[in-house]
Write a protein that binds this DNA or RNA. Structure first.
Lengths: 161, 161
DNA sequence: CAATAATGCCTTCCTGGGAAGGTATATTCC
DNA sequence: GGAATATACCTTCCCAGGAAGGCATTATTG
């Protein structure tokens, strides 16, 4: 990125390209982190999106349920994507659907025992993996980073973030 | 994210889920930023990936050329993805291919005059957009963030980052 | 109590990019 | 110099997810 910024400064000295530093690096680090996180999901035949859904259900606590619209909102995806993720997980036997009794439009998605067991195993390894990655930073920087990103998320209108 | 972390703490008090704060927020902020940046590219009929390639060529300076492998490396994508991006841009008349004279395996990708003009216009608006987004942060935080992300990128092995 | 609007979920269509492998040229090592 | 290996680019196949719109149900408003 330093090189990229230098190149831009040389080519377009009329522009102040300093924002590229923060935004560009954020993208690159995000991509690298994803690359480090995916293999653990893949060992269980899951993608990032599948894990997201299962995690949403698991951390909701008993009875491990959520609606597709809630899942879509917390995962920042469209409703169509949520439908597909759920269908995939249902096929894999990790999740079930049932109609809501209070609202005829609503489906309730629930974790199966297999899904719950899978997550309980997987989360441990995932969290350990994240510890490893975050461990690359100075402890003080971790907190700084989380704090800065939280305020940015808020400014960007991410209610959940 | 705060809510997500609380939920995990309640459900799995045996795990230290503090890393989720930094990594989760980074993903969410990245997604939000992308959502803010894409419309400007879309106005010119480009996607993020197309812009990346054109930017790589433009900031390389005269004669605005690069090889597919270099493009792939700086954009952190596979060679197949690079081929497709270049083919798309070639179809749009923004880029040309020619064979390298020094190495028979190598293609040289170059910006057309149209491509160069497009980028010169687009970069201005893109940089302005990034200024707006980065402007949501305290000035001191911007530098902190860039510094922390740089060291993380290095630790993650991102030579370009 | 209609009539209209909003909500929730799903479907179809399309696109971007990864994985894996193919082919042609270059390089290395005897 | 020739065989083995590496490199560069491309091709094919596949899949995840967005956009747009459809259908059913619920909420709202007159």
């Amino acid at each position: 990125m330093d090189r990229i910024i230098e190149q831009w400064q040389r080519e377009r000295p009329d522009l102040d390209v300093s924002p590229l530093g923060a935004i560009g690096r954020l993208h690159r680090v995000g991509a690298q982190l994803e690359r480090e996180l995916l293999p653990i999901f893949a060992e269980e035949g899951l993608g990032q999106g599948d894990f997201d859904v299962l995690a949403t259900l698991r951390r909701a606590g008993e009875p491990y349920e959520a609606t597709p619209s809630r899942i879509a909102a917390t995962s920042m995806i469209t409703s169509g994507a949520a439908t597909k993720r759920i269908a995939r997980l249902e096929r894999a036997g990790l999740v079930t659907r049932r109609a809501s009794e209070s609202d005829g439009r609503v489906q309730v998605i629930g974790l199966t025992p297999e899904g719950r067991e899978l997550m309980d195993r997987l989360v441990e390894r995932h969290v350990a993996n994240e510890h490893r990655l975050v461990g690359m930073l100075e402890p003080a920087d971790r907190e700084h980073l989380a704090r800065i990103l939280r305020s940015w998320a808020l400014a960007l209108g991410d209610g959940e973030g």
